[in-house]
Design a protein around this nucleic acid. Structure first.
Lengths: 132, 132
DNA sequence: CCTGTTATAGACTTTAGGAATCCATAATAA
DNA sequence: TTATTATGGATTCCTAAAGTCTATAACAGG
């Protein structure tokens, strides 16, 4: 079980949008260069972030991506869900009704993780970076 | 990102060992029948549990698997780690030194989840089942 | 010391999803 | 109208999960 690399890229892309260019839109070209990924591949993830309502895009000259919400209102969980989807990490495949105690335990542990990720905002990390 | 189905099987197999046969060893044949999996496939997971020190195996007639520790000392995390391995869920692929703030956040969230899973013992669930 | 029973190991196949590329198309600012 | 930028679909490559098959090792019981 691992987070996809796409999530890694998306998190770093969001952090870049916040720290390096809070005002002007950033194109996928520059972004891809900074992260060391191909443009076409990265654009897939950016599109997901757009559809999730985290950023907004503009085509045409001087277009690119910009935050849609305030950076204090974008959590790690938001980004991760946008890329990985919101399905549960664990689904029991047995047929013992819908009441699997094992599943309940694992899902509760997942909730613990998500609670932390939901409280951690992209702004928190941005501040730490600028403090250096 | 998902838990493998093997983890699902292993968790259920362990729960069966505890609830249905705390005394006598259980063979993979019976176990596989109860879970609805093939013997050879399930045996792979049982072997991992053996190597992790959670259960012990005995060959020959009347052999099978038995707990090695007390059921109060076997956590969900023990079982999951035995099957999935202990590698981190997230590894930053960028080259910005070993100090990736994003990675630190995600790893801390993982710790939250693991703490819950480490405190949840197989005995806890076994008790709930018997209460019904 | 056999014989049946059981676990372990390795090789192998199939399938699904991640990772990435390429190209065509839509939108829009200058 | 043109250059610029995002979006979308099709396609390829590769790895890991999921599962099967078969051979081998270990051992209890007669």
């Amino acid at each position: 079980m691992k987070y996809s690399q796409a999530t890694d890229y998306a998190l770093h892309a969001m952090l870049y949008l916040v720290t390096a260019a809070p005002d002007k839109p950033v194109g996928v070209q520059l972004l891809a260069e900074k992260l060391g990924v191909s443009q076409t591949y990265l654009s897939k993830m950016m599109t997901k972030l757009v559809k999730a309502g985290l950023i907004q895009s503009a085509t045409g000259a001087n277009g690119g991506y910009r935050l849609r919400r305030k950076q204090e209102d974008i959590s790690f969980l938001d980004i991760i869900h946008a890329i990985e989807g919101t399905a549960s990490l664990f689904e029991c495949s047995m047929d013992h009704g819908s009441e699997c105690l094992i599943q309940q335990v694992v899902m509760e542990s997942e909730r613990q993780m998500e609670q932390y990720l939901g409280n951690k905002k992209i702004a928190d990390v941005a501040k730490l970076m600028q403090a250096k």
